[in-house]
Amino acid sequence: MSSKASTASKSTQPAGPPIVARIAQLMAGLGIAALPRNYELLFEALNGNAGVARDVAALGKTPDQLSLDAIALRHALPSHNALAAGQAADEAVRVLCEIAKTSEESQRQRAAAMQELEEIAARMQRDPVLGISDFTSDATRLLSLMQDILGADRTAAARIGDLQCHLDSLRSGLAISRDALTHDPVTGLANKAALLSHLNGIFDDKAAAGTSALLVFRVEQLRKFAESHAAGSDEKTVKRLATIFRQSVKKNDLVARTGPDLFCLLLCDVTREIAAGIARRVADKVVEMPFPFLDRELPAGFLTLTAGVSMTDSATTPVTLYEQADQALAYAAETGIALRIYSAEVAERAGRTYRGGAAA
């Protein structure tokens, strides 16, 4: 896992993450508006999402906002879900207006045909011996109306079929958009929103769920190494790490990626000792394994893990549980140890840090 040497190196790093400066430079260079959704798009492009990076690069200089939004929608980035939902709502309104217009025209033609029939019936009642020429004229006119109605019905059926396909496409797009709200785009793992949502279920019925553990891991060296290489160069590494985490848990446990170098395990019905043992086994696997990176491999031992653990029996809400694991992780990194479980000592250290920051 981590060491004091790595802790020391972290303390000398600048306060602001380099990727923020890179995003600002890229925005200025390409003339991209400083919108929140554009920040997320460029963050994805610079932080491991190779597909987004390629699509943004293909736009060339001074890309327009519509093209940028199209890339984000195509890759289902979370900040664009509201935009996607708005577009889908507009499309749905347009589709329903077209259906209503088609139905209204069909009703008008049927009303005209009914009126013709009523007029013919009335004339026949007034004059039972209706002339053949008059009857032929009425029949011809009525036949023409019926042909128009049948033709309109066929056209309407085809149009409604097309509209149904369009609505199905919109529904599929919204499903992808919803999926993006809860999944990491690179690994397919749950994201932080999904993790907290899952925790809500546990805290709603803690008695039935038993004691659960939240393990937050930071992959040391990964972010710094990725930022010094081309965008998306760490994608294979991140996917290999995701596989290791998936293979380390039971079926009912949850694996999440909550940051560029952060992975979480939510273990159900475990003790502190079991949770700590799983954390150590995962860390050992990572240390022992080489990882693919561009056209070479990162040697075994290049990446290490630092872990913080919190337990549901010491937290009152999902957010508190996550914060406790994060505090334990920070404590472990500060003291140069591999693993720390949330405790009164960790809480006191976090309080001192908060008070010191507030005083400054």
Rank of each mutant, 00 (worst) to 15 (best):
K4P: 01
K4Y: 06
G16C: 11
I19P: 00
I32L: 01
L35R: 11
A57P: 03
G60L: 09
P63M: 01
P63E: 04
Q65M: 12
A76S: 08
L77V: 00
N81R: 12
L83Q: 00
A84E: 15
G86F: 04
D90S: 13
A92H: 12
V93H: 15
V95T: 02
I99E: 13
K101V: 12
T102H: 09
S103E: 14
E104T: 12
E105V: 12
R108C: 06
R110S: 06
Q115F: 07
E118W: 00
E119M: 05
A121H: 14
D127C: 11
L130N: 09
L130V: 13
G131W: 02
D134N: 06
D134E: 11
T136K: 09
S137M: 09
I149A: 14
L150W: 10
G151L: 04
D153K: 02
D153C: 02
A156N: 10
A157C: 03
A158F: 07
G161V: 00
H166C: 15
D168Y: 04
A175S: 13
S177A: 12
S177M: 00
L189A: 04
K192S: 05
A193V: 10
L196V: 02
H198D: 10
K206Y: 01
A207E: 14
A208T: 15
T211F: 06
V216W: 03
R218L: 01
V219T: 01
E220M: 08
Q221Y: 00
G232M: 02
S233R: 11
K236F: 08
K239I: 10
I244N: 05
F245A: 05
K250T: 03
N252F: 09
G259P: 06
T271K: 06
R272C: 08
I274H: 10
A283I: 07
P299V: 13
T304P: 00
Q327K: 05
A328T: 12
A330V: 07
A347S: 02
A347V: 02
R349I: 00
R349P: 00
R355W: 03
G356L: 07
A359F: 03
